[in-house]
Each structure stands twice: as structure tokens, then as C-alpha cells.
């Protein structure tokens, strides 16, 4: 499956600490958002409000401390027309050289929707369909 975006970094801190920075409100507000709400259980909702007031939200899909975190993701303010929860972010944590390697993969569809799409271009077209679907069904009617 094609990732919509990928990023990776090595951090000189223990894996438990890095995982905690991703999964607690105190942790998230120290690097990700001005304000964070976290209901850390499968199906539980999360919400981040970034600088400038733009909010993202979604729900947790998989929580496996301290190695893996998966959640649905989208922008409430309609950036790209991607509705909240319409994409999926998977974060993998591995111990590396006494520190932690963090790998983020942002895919364009929820796991359920992704299963219906073939690998490759079809998947990416599905991404676009999901994005487009969030910006209103027809041309001039709905504006964000």
C-alpha cells in the first residue's frame, strides 16, 4: 500500500518516554499541539488543536505500548477537504543505539476502506476519492 506520507527520526531518549509523549495530553502539548484531548483506548477519541486554532481529530485504532500506535486522522477545518478520521496514521517505535527510532506512516484511508482498494494507483485514487468526498458532493454548493 502506498503511504500518503512517511517520516522517520532517531531520538536520544528511552522508548517509554517517547511513547508517552505521543499518548498523553501533557506530552502532546509539549511538541504537537497547543491543546490535546486523549481517550487512550481502541475506539477512543483524540483531538489536537494546533497553533492558530486549526484542529485535527480521530480515534485510536491500535495501542501497543511502547512499540506501536495507530489512529485515524483528519482536519476539522477542512484542510485538503480531509474530514476528521478519514486517514490513518501508524507510528512505530523501536529501540535503536540506546535511543528510540520513530517512524510515522500516514495513509490516505481508514483500514476498513483501504481493504477495498488494490495496491498501487487504485489505492491512491481511493485516497483522492476520500479527500474529494469530504469537500461536498457537487461543485458550487458547499464551501468550507
Amino acid at each position: 500500500m502506498i503511504g500518503l506520507a512517511e517520516a522517520e527520526i532517531e531520538i536520544g531518549a528511552p522508548i517509554d518516554r517517547v511513547f508517552e509523549l505521543w499518548t498523553s495530553t501533557e506530552g502532546l502539548t509539549s511538541w504537537m499541539a497547543d491543546h490535546a484531548e486523549v481517550d487512550l483506548r481502541p475506539g477512543g477519541a483524540w483531538r489536537w488543536v494546533h497553533e492558530g486554532g486549526e484542529a485535527c481529530s480521530g480515534a485510536y485504532v491500535e495501542i501497543a505500548p511502547p512499540r506501536r500506535l495507530v489512529f485515524t486522522y483528519g482536519w476539522e477545518t477542512g484542510r485538503f477537504g480531509v474530514p476528521a478520521g478519514s486517514t490513518t496514521v501508524a507510528v512505530d517505535f523501536t529501540e535503536h543505539d540506546g535511543g528510540t527510532r520513530v517512524r510515522v506512516r500516514h495513509d490516505g484511508l481508514t483500514p476498513e476502506a483501504a481493504e477495498r482498494h488494490r495496491i498501487g494507483w487504485s489505492h491512491f485514487l481511493g485516497v483522492l476519492a476520500a479527500i474529494a468526498g469530504g469537500s461536498g458532493p457537487h461543485d458550487e454548493q458547499e464551501m468550507h
Partner: peptide, 23 residues
């Protein structure tokens, strides 16, 4: 894709700075 890559790279840079400072 480039926009999203930039977003996550930027955030992970901040995460690194915060995690290593706290540590």
C-alpha cells in the same frame, strides 16, 4: 504528499527536541 511529509518531519523534529531535553 510533499505537504504531509513536511508536516510530519517538522513535528518529529520538535518531538526529538522535547524528548531529548526532558531526558
Amino acid at each position: 504528499r510533499r505537504y504531509l511529509d513536511g508536516f510530519w518531519t517538522d513535528r518529529l523534529g520538535r518531538l526529538k527536541a522535547v524528548a531529548e531535553t526532558i531526558d
